[in-house]
């Protein structure tokens, strides 16, 4: 059986304690707020786009280790990618943490730090923590005004 300690691998703890791209982006051209009404976690994602490419992405959050690490890993993973590419990565990530079969077939090397969140699939109560930033990223890219929630 997978222990909760398997959730908190070194990579996760590193991102939790030193989140990358953790700042307010004053000149963002897209931003969205997400919250998890079950636990009160809040998160904002800021994006700058240029010619269909994510040139800068940052976040601010008040949340658990899993949601903070996931957001941090996400910003590193999507920076420099085309929007279409990002949308695809979001779906891949969601499949990964919900334990969809095709996502488990992906070579961990291709996922980089994202792979460290794979164990979330063994903790259904924590999937929303891991996906909050990704839902919020999608909302920011799609220009939705309403705050997204995990519900």
């Amino acid at each position: 059986m997978v222990d909760a300690t398997d959730l908190y691998q070194e990579i996760i703890m590193d991102h939790t304690k030193s989140p990358r791209n953790y700042e307010h982006l004053a000149d963002a051209d897209h931003e969205a707020q997400g919250d998890n009404p079950l636990c009160g976690d809040e998160l904002t994602v800021y994006i700058k786009l240029d010619d269909g490419k994510v040139t800068d992405v940052t976040f601010e959050a008040d949340g658990c280790a899993i949601s903070t690490a996931s957001a941090s890993v996400m910003t590193e993973a999507v920076e420099g990618r085309d929007i279409d590419d990002v949308e695809e990565l979001v779906e891949t990530f969601k499949n990964l943490v919900t334990g969809e079969e095709d996502a488990n077939a992906i070579d961990p090397a291709e996922l980089g730090d994202l792979a460290a969140l794979r164990n979330v699939q063994n903790f259904p109560t924590r999937v929303k923590c891991a996906t909050l930033s990704w839902h919020t990223l999608q909302a920011a890219l799609n220009g939705r005004d309403e705050p997204v929630t995990t519900e």
Binding site: A4, T5, L38, C39, G40, C64, T125, R126
Partner: peptide, 22 residues
């Protein structure tokens, strides 16, 4: 230094059921 959700997940391994949230 520990978010209550993370705490609840970890001590769940010990059979402890607490609530975490708002």
């Amino acid at each position: 230094g520990i978010h209550p959700h993370d705490l609840a997940s970890i001590i769940d391994d010990d059979g402890v059921a607490i609530r975490a949230g708002h």
